[in-house]
Design a protein around this nucleic acid. Structure first.
Length: 413
RNA sequence: GUGGGUGUAGCUCAGUUGGUUAGAGCGCCAGUUUGUGGCACUGGAGGCCGCGGGUUCAAAUCCCGUCACUCACCCCA
């Protein structure tokens, strides 16, 4: 095939699906505004340094999945693989302003992975960052906001999985503790997990291999190695969520991918999805951006996955055009010329209007109107031009009437 | 990065053990209706059988490579 096609894992989003995206986006903006979140639009291209330390030097995103290259000026840059680091880069230079910023972003992210169900190389995230020092109430507020968002999206049943990673001071104890518990079982673990023992112990917790699962079940809970304050923090998050009646489930085995998380972490899963069943992941974090340390809590939602999780009925409703289509049909060239002007008038009055521009037969024009789901057809020929009228046909019922040109807008209502 | 499945008309797919001009349904165009969609009937257009090599008298069919789609692993939203 010689005609160009989109790159692997990157797809065009077009009608009728793009209307669903637009509905999701506008509803999201409404909900986020109620919590006083403002949009931030950061560049897609960033210096690689923005991601290196913030995401963790060993994370697979940084080591293997970035679309990175060198500019002609010799700068190492990459397409953003996630949203939080760019927002932190934005905030790091803004002093006080950053302390209590509430920002959201909406746009494409890029990771060079193998595509599969719910995973694309260019995918789209809606992300939210609520800044401020660790506060269980704020964590709960953000989770509640997300629940409100999913409600506005009319998403079917989803499950909020909640866990804590503890404080940074807890991390070494947790990793050592887990490793020590797992070492006696080393030979029974799957190959991946034996490797994880060295570079990513936490990931053993959510391994899908049955043998590993069994071993993991016998492990003491991760809170075993946490300071009492960390556990108390988590308890307060849960109390706050209970107060707001936000349903959630504590999942002690929940692990988040990026290094910057601490304390509260969560994931939202849906059974409507395939193997990649997480619609969203979030958590509290502390991120170092140059000399600045930024505290916040946020989440990212995979928009493609949200679309996968929507029911067919909801998608149909969301894809529906707001306005009925009006199609202008002309019998001859003279009528077409007149319609050209009428189309402009009607559009100025707010109607969604289209007309034939190619000089097809009336029959063909009517067919096209049917195909494009026009609600109204306005038909003009010799008679209408002579009498300064128009025939207005309601395609949904197949009835029509001839009305003076000045009354057309009233009939369309 | 690893593994499985799939690439034939705009779409969904047939295509027998390699064998003449590669088929169907839907869609599209036209006519039946020289001012009118949906239904029906009739006719028509449209394929380098993903791409490149190879085997063969002969390849959509067999072999190799490659690109893409798809599902799963890894990883993650």
């Amino acid at each position: 095939m010689t005609t160009p096609q989109a790159l692997q894992g990157m797809s065009d989003i077009f009608s009728p699906e793009v209307e669903i995206w637009q509905t999701l986006e506008s509803r999201a903006r409404e909900v986020l505004a109620r919590y006083d979140f403002r949009e931030v639009r950061t560049p897609i291209l960033e210096e690689v340094g923005v991601y290196l330390h913030s995401l963790g030097d060993t994370s697979e995103i940084v080591t293997k999945q970035m679309y990175a290259f060198e500019t002609r000026g010799g700068k190492q840059v990459c397409m953003r693989p996630e949203g939080t680091a760019g927002v932190m880069r934005h905030l790091a230079g803004r002093g006080q302003e950053a302390q209590d910023a509430r920002l959201y972003y909406l746009g494409p992210m890029f990771r060079a992975e193998r595509p599969q169900a719910g995973r694309r190389r260019q995918f789209h995230q809606l992300g939210v960052e609520g800044m401020g020092p660790a506060s269980p109430e704020q964590d709960a507020e953000i989770i509640a906001m997300q629940a409100a968002l999913f409600e506005a999206w009319e998403l079917g049943p989803v499950s909020f999985q909640l866990n804590t990673r503890g404080a940074p001071e807890d991390f070494p104890r947790i990793l050592d503790g887990l490793r020590n518990e797992l070492l006696p079982h080393q030979d029974s673990l799957c190959g991946d997990c034996q490797r994880r023992l060295d570079n990513n112990v936490l990931r053993v917790l959510d391994c899908k291999v049955p043998g590993c699962k069994e071993i993991v079940q016998s492990l003491p809970p991760i809170t075993t190695w946490m300071a009492p304050e960390s556990i108390a923090y988590f308890d307060r998050v849960r109390a706050a969520l209970d107060a707001l009646k936000v349903p959630y489930e504590v999942n002690p085995l929940l692990v988040r991918g990026l290094d910057y998380y601490q304390h509260t972490i969560w994931e939202v899963t849906s059974t409507a999805l395939g193997a990649q069943d997480a619609l969203s992941g979030g958590g509290r974090y502390r991120m170092a951006m140059g000399k600045t340390e930024l505290d916040g809590v946020g989440f990212g939602i995979g928009m493609e996955r949200v679309l996968l999780a929507l029911s067919e009925d909801t998608k149909t409703a969301f894809a529906k055009d707001a306005k009925d289509l009006v199609m202008l049909v002309a019998q001859n060239d003279e009528a077409r010329g007149a319609n050209f002007v009428l189309a402009a008038d009607l559009r100025a009055a707010g109607f969604r209007v289209r007309m034939d521009l190619t000089g097809k037969s009336m029959k063909a024009q009517m067919k096209a109107a049917g195909r494009q789901n026009a609600r109204w057809v306005i038909l003009r020929g010799e008679n209408e031009l002579a009498q300064n009228t128009a025939t207005v046909r309601d395609m949904s019922v197949g009835e029509q009437s001839e009305v003076p040109l000045g009354q057309v807008k009233d009939v369309l209502k």
